[in-house]
């Protein structure tokens, strides 16, 4: 498995973490009403969306490189 293939797995895991962390932060905000929890939730969602955009860019950029 090449670095390209492992990177795709990594981007997938990071995206899932970002959305999961976003949900955790919003849940924490609903209890604490702390601005920091809200900010972290928004940042996590933005990062999650950013990772999806980046993943598409990455696949396009490295389309000629093997997965092996």
């Amino acid at each position: 498995m090449s670095l390209k293939a492992l990177h795709i797995i990594f981007v997938t895991c990071s995206t899932l973490l970002a959305f999961g962390f976003g949900a955790w932060s919003f849940h924490a905000y609903s209890h604490s009403r702390a601005v920091l929890d809200l900010v972290m939730g928004i940042v996590a969602l933005v990062v999650g969306l950013g990772m999806i955009v980046y993943g598409r860019y990455f696949l396009k950029k490295l389309k000629n490189i093997s997965y092996l």
């Binding site: 670095l3 990594f10 973490l17 972290m40 996590a44 990062v47 990772m51 950029k61 490189i65």
Partner: peptide, 27 residues
Amino acid sequence: SVPLGTINTLVLIGSSVTVVLSWAALK
């Protein structure tokens, strides 16, 4: 500290992106 852990997570995610981009640059 969740904020510190979050920053460290973002830093490591960023470093993986730069690692793979550096390899792609050599290619």
